[in-house]
Design a protein around this nucleic acid. Structure first.
Lengths: 238, 238
DNA sequence: TCTATTTGTTAGTTTCGTCTAACAGAAATA
DNA sequence: TATTTCTGTTAGACGAAACTAACAAATAGA
């Protein structure tokens, strides 16, 4: 239940990956090296090695060098690949700080499914081969939320009471934007206007079944597509 | 160390999120509901509730309904949002099966940083607003690995011995492709040709410091950009 | 009202993964 | 050779999170 893949835990996968890294450069792997690289006490490494040896993932005898078995090599390499895919997605696509990306990849790598690996790999192939995609992503991330073609886009404050809309974008500064996102206001979320913000009564919307108050000014920075404002709405309801 | 955020563990975050979900539809949350939704024994729920109450995230008194505090509501909502961002990324962008995406999102949600949330949210805003991006991604994922503009792209087998290249794409069927990816052959990986595949001696390349054997036919399906084949290579070396 | 069922809690166990402190083997140095 | 230092292991503890089994409270039925 800890790891999505095999019957190996995330922690053991980390040990395996570390051994892989060390052997990729150092010809031998010792308890000390592993402990250092993982910032863990050497006393924690020994029992982990025992568990890995039990599962036939490493060759390990007391007080001796540590080596990966075929099976261990396979698992380690796959984990490493998952790590790289995630880390690169965070840095190259999302533009996250490399150090932070490493740490996130480290935590998440144990759960990435085979299918997702495949799709992410395909994404990178396409991304590398397509200057158009690169340009689009660069533009999309450097420019502001985009004005977008007028369509039926409107401020959340313009929604009719009782009506529901789908969030298209947030037109707010970094801090407020972060708060809104934390609160669930992301593109695609559906919000229902409960009470429009009168003079000093706060604006109230429903999201996920919860009513949330928003300062009217904040609500104005949320752009939505109203759901079938006037036309047949018997099509999208459940 | 378990959760990237607060001092709350992933497990507790899951409980909080479940309570959030239940209260979003049911007006009250009981131990039973939580146990059912999380597929966990009721005896596991009680101690979790105690831990959450200790941390002031829920209001909980023995044998009574469970309610989120302000702080708990905030954490739950943020977790929910991380979950949604990840789940939607897997389904809408990568095209993963929704059920699998849910499960992956569930495991990973505890580790997504604030920055990554922000960037992912921006990605969705841009994606929703940009038909070009949507078209590109659809095309990129439905079509084959792309022929790509001839450039300096070549089969891995054409690399000079001792030379290094960067993988551009894999031109292989589903199964082989999956195996290659597991073994670390993804776009952007750097591989060095150790020994070209003679008649029956297998092809050997180095990746991550490890020599790997490949059937020549397999190696031919890996397309690479040779690293500065003839021109100055004193620039990229360490 | 009394019993049966549902629901929640407690107690006790297990597994995992970490730690510190103490000890044992190996290597390096005097 | 004897001693110090480095390295690895063991023992013992702890906290988190799950489980089963037994018990207690509350609700519902008869």
């Amino acid at each position: 239940m800890t790891s999505a893949v095999n019957d190996i835990t995330g922690s053991l996968e980390d040990y395996l990956e570390t051994i892989y890294r060390i052997l990729g450069r150092s010809s031998v792997a010792r308890v000390r090296d592993i402990a250092e690289e993982m910032e863990v006490s050497p006393a924690s490494v020994t029992p982990a090695m025992k568990r890995l040896a039990e599962k036939q993932l490493i060759r390990y005898s007391k007080r001796n060098y540590i080596d990966l078995t075929e099976k261990g090599l396979f698992v380690a390499r796959r984990t490493m690949t998952r790590h790289n895919l995630l880390s690169r997605f965070f840095t190259e696509i999302l533009g996250i700080d490399p150090e932070q990306a490493e740490s996130e990849a480290c935590s998440m790598e144990h759960f990435l499914s085979e299918d997702s690996m495949e799709r992410l790999a395909a994404f990178f192939e396409f991304h590398a081969a397509s200057p158009e995609l690169q340009d689009l992503l660069n533009a999309g991330f450097t420019s502001c939320p985009e004005p977008e073609n007028g369509n039926d886009l409107t401020k959340l404050t313009n929604l009719e009471p009782g009506c529901t809309g789908t969030i298209a974008s947030l037109n707010a500064g970094r801090k407020l934007r972060g708060q809104l996102i934390d609160s669930g206001f992301i593109q695609g979320s559906r919000v229902t206007l409960i009470r429009p913000g009168d003079d000093d009564l706060p604006f109230i919307v429903n999201l996920d079944g919860y009513d949330q108050q928003l300062p009217t000014l904040t609500a104005e920075s949320i752009l939505v597509h109203p759901d079938s404002e006037l036309t047949g709405e018997d099509d999208n309801e459940k």
